[in-house]
Each structure stands twice: as C-alpha cells, then as structure tokens.
C-alpha cells in the first residue's frame, strides 16, 4: 500500500495547461479523477505512470520522489481504455508478461497466473487469444495482467467506457470488490459521474486543466464548492438572491444563509418536498420510472423537484396549478469572481 502525492504539478502542451497544486491518495484509497473530456484527467494519470513528464512539480510514492523513475521501474499496474492486450499472445502469456520480466521461477509464475485468473473469474481461458474474448473478458484479462505483478499502485483509465451498460455495472462492482480485497491504492479516471459515485472513496472533480474539489462522493454531491462541481455531478437548483439579516428569499421561499449581500443557493431536486399550498406554479412535469420531476416557477425562477410518486399529496393526473414547496437542505456556493 502506497501513499500517492502530487505537488505543484505543472504540465504544458500546445493549447493545454494542467495545474495541480496538491493531490493525495491515502494508502488503500480508491481515488477517482472525474471530469469532462479534455480536462486533463488522463494526462494526470499518465504523469503518475511516468508516460508524460511534468514541466514542474513532484510525484511522491510514500516519501520517495518518482519524477525521474522510468515507468518500467515504478511497479504500477495500468488498465488502458482499449485494454492494450498484446494481440499476439494468449491470455496466459499476457498475464505472465510482467512476471517473466521479473524473472520469477516457473512455479511461482504458474501459481500467480492461476491466482489472477481466479481473482477475475476467468479460469479456463488461459489459451485463448484476445480477439477470441468478449469486451468484458478482455477487460478482466487487462485487470489480471495489471494486478498479477503486485503493483504498488493501480491506475485505471476509463476501463469501462467501451462496454455495454449492463456489463459496465457488473464490472465496476467487481473492480471495487477486488480493490477492497487487495487493499491497493487505486487511481481511477472516468467522465461518468454515476460510475464515480458508485465506486470511489474519494473523488477529485476536474475542469479544464485543474482540480475543482476533492471529497467523498456524498460530500461533493450535497456540498459542492462551486457551480461547476454542482452541475457536473447531477441535476441542480442554483438560485441567486440578495440576503438581508442573514436571510435570502425568493417569493415565499426563504433560506437561512447567515450571510449578507448576493448569494448563490444550491440544492438538489430530491431536497425539494411538495405539499399543498401556493408557493409556486407547476410549469411542466416529466414522468420517470416510479418518480416525477416537476418544474416549478417561484417568482420567476424555475426550481426542479424530484419525488417518488407516492410522496406527493396529489394524483399525478390531477396536479393542481399551484403547489407548496419545502427545501429540506441546501448549501451556499462560492461566488465566481
């Protein structure tokens, strides 16, 4: 188990600049880099792996600076987006590739291969070639190949993005299980917020070239620091209002913000409860499986509410024009300069 730390990382490439003042993954932690495409999350991963060189800054594994250590001496396991299985080698040869380079004894290699195959549930596939496997199976082989060398750090670069939705959900559960079982420090790159929430201990949300916020999934979801993080993690309501005497109001709806002046109030649709009343006008609604999403106009601002069907005090066919609203929890966003 290793502690990974990035300090003052600066990386420049034509038209792109990456800056990471500080990022840490504690020993055994599952840290996800989440962000839109082109934000630099894969570049960050490649800097950690040693495939890209940062112009400035330091990469630590525990307390050792790794900047000048070539990738093949870092003892890392990587799973690439396209798996990068060697097409001219069987499953067995792919998995034993790193072991042979480490000059392990034949018996040891055999033992470890069967351990790895069992770990990913691919016993009996030893002599297949990659092209004879399904996408999900290839992904498992890639994972086994990365883990069999007992790496200090596991790096996963969008490992599920080429798979069908169903297999994706199953495999992410397995990745999580294996990571827990081995207790290996893991950096995971994805652009899929649902995947990130489901799998991570910690998430670092990135916008173009920088990290916006690091925190646990729940932390980020309910208390994002700014609008970017809030909107990247799901549907959000963001209202701007003027606060007086620690209170900001929009129509009948008031928030105890304990601040003065202009504020940005944030809450998720599921924090909005519906009751009988006349706080806002229902503009539109959408039926989702078992739920309903309402758009409610409150004093000119649109608020989105999401509730289970049996939680609202009306029949959905007989929705009144006006409804009452209660926002159970909210947070205040950083104002942009």
């Amino acid at each position: 188990m290793v502690r990974l730390r990035l300090e003052d990382i600066e990386f420049k490439q034509e038209g792109f600049e990456l800056n990471i003042p500080f990022l840490e993954a504690r020993p055994g932690e599952f840290l996800t880099l989440l962000g839109p495409s082109g934000c630099g999350k894969t570049t960050t991963l490649r800097i950690i792996a040693g495939f890209e060189k940062a112009d400035r800054g330091r990469i630590y594994f525990d307390d050792i600076v790794m900047n000048e250590v070539p990738p093949y001496e870092r003892n890392i396991g990587i799973v690439f987006q396209d798996y990068a299985l060697f097409p001219h080698m069987t499953v067995c040869d792919n998995i034993s590739f790193g072991l042979k380079l480490r000059k392990l004894s034949k018996e040891e290699i055999k033992k470890r291969i069967s351990w790895a195959l069992k770990l990913v549930g691919l016993e009996g596939f030893e002599n297949r070639y990659p092209e004879q496997l399904s996408g999900g199976q290839q992904q498992r082989v890639a994972l086994a190949r990365a883990l069999v060398i007992e790496p200090r750090l596991l790096l996963l670069d969008e490992p599920l993005s080429n798979l069908d939705a169903k297999i994706r959900e199953r495999l992410r559960g397995e990745i999580k299980r294996i990571q827990r079982e081995l207790g290996i420090t893991t950096i995971y790159v994805t652009h899929d917020q649902e995947e990130a929430m489901a799998i991570s201990d910690m998430i670092a949300v990135m916008s173009i070239g920088k990290i916006e916020q690091v925190g646990s999934p729940l932390d980020l979801y309910y208390s994002p620091k700014n609008e970017f993080v809030a909107q990247f993690l799901g549907l959000s309501n963001i209202l701007e209002a003027n606060a007086e005497n620690g209170k900001a109001c929009i129509g009948n709806l008031c928030f105890e913000v304990k601040k003065e002046g202009r504020v940005k109030i944030f809450f998720r649709p599921e924090s909005v409860y519906i009751k009988k009343g006349d706080d806002g006008e229902v503009v539109d609604y959408e039926l989702l499986p078992g739920r309903v999403r309402l758009k409610i106009d409150v004093d000119g601002e649109i608020i989105i509410a999401e509730r289970f069907l049996d939680e609202i005090p009306f029949l959905i066919e007989k929705l009144p024009k006006k409804v009452g609203i209660k926002v159970k929890s909210f947070s205040i966003l950083e104002s942009f300069p």
Binding site: P70, P71, Y72, N75, I78, F80, A84, A146
Partner: peptide, 15 residues
C-alpha cells in the same frame, strides 16, 4: 500497432 501496447509493456516492467 497501438502505442498503448508499448506503454502497457512498460508499465509491466519492460524497458
């Protein structure tokens, strides 16, 4: 040949 293959080999300990 995908450049990823070379990198995969390098991550596994090959120079």
């Amino acid at each position: 040949i995908k450049p990823g293959l070379k990198e995969a080999a390098m991550s596994l300990g090959a120079n």
